[in-house]
């Protein structure tokens, strides 16, 4: 995080933000995540790798492995839905930011927050239907997954993906993921990818860049 708050700079940013009309960024390639809901063992190595990478104290969790269970003994089912930030095509967080700290990168569609402009007002946190922006009370800032942009720049993959012991989490161009064309161990042979699973917020709200190999009980008709 930034060590000092530069008030003049933030004021200038707010002024600029009020003058500008927001036009959605159309990325050259949109990167996104793919997660296999069935084969995931739910170990949360990805969560811990993320916390270590981002230096977070207990509390904010950029990546969240959600356990979903149902049925009645002994006919039960369990699957996992693993989400961080979905780097949406139409991010709901972005237009809510009063200082313009949130931006979407043209080259790969990554949505990020400029921490030097964030004032910790938490509007984005409320706007996101997926719970991606997380308030860090230690730094008094909102933070979130930036797809390990430094690793992407270095030609590697995010920490969560490289942590996955079952190789069920991956990234790639999202169109390839949705078509199950991406060559990745996350998608097994004959498996199809869906954009929406049960009990997940309506994807029409923000058009999230994520695909899932769904559990039979998690399919949306």
């Amino acid at each position: 995080m930034s060590e000092t708050i530069e008030k003049a700079k933030i004021k200038e940013a707010v002024k600029r933000r009020k003058l500008e009309t927001y036009t959605p960024v159309k990325p050259e390639v949109q990167l996104g995540f793919v997660h296999n809901n069935v084969d995931c063992i739910g170990c949360r190595a990805c969560e811990i790798a993320c916390k270590d990478k981002n230096g977070l104290a207990p509390g904010p969790r950029f990546r969240r492995v959600q356990y979903i269970e149902g049925g009645t003994y002994p006919n039960v089912y369990v699957y996992k839905v693993n989400m961080s930030c979905n780097h949406c095509a139409e991010p709901a967080c972005l237009p809510t930011c009063p200082t313009g700290a949130i931006f979407k990168r043209k080259q790969d569609g990554i949505v990020d927050i400029d921490s030097t402009l964030c004032i910790g007002c938490r509007r984005c946190e409320a706007a996101c239907p997926f719970g991606a922006p997380q308030f860090d009370p230690v730094d008094n800032l909102v933070k979130k997954c930036n797809l390990c942009v430094d690793e992407i720049e270095a030609g590697r993959k995010p920490y969560c993906v490289m942590a996955c012991m079952m190789r069920v989490l991956d990234i790639g161009p999202i169109e390839e993921i949705w078509d199950a064309e991406l060559e990745t161990p996350a998608i097994g042979p004959e498996e199809k990818v869906v954009r929406q699973v049960k009990n997940m917020a309506n994807i029409e709200l923000t058009k999230p860049s994520i695909g899932f190999v769904p559990h039979s009980k998690g399919r949306v008709k």
Binding site: D114, N146, D150
Partner: peptide, 12 residues
């Protein structure tokens, strides 16, 4: 101005 979220941030 820093575009990367948490700079100064030592990269790998």
């Amino acid at each position: 101005a820093r575009a990367f979220a948490y700079e100064p941030y030592p990269k790998d």
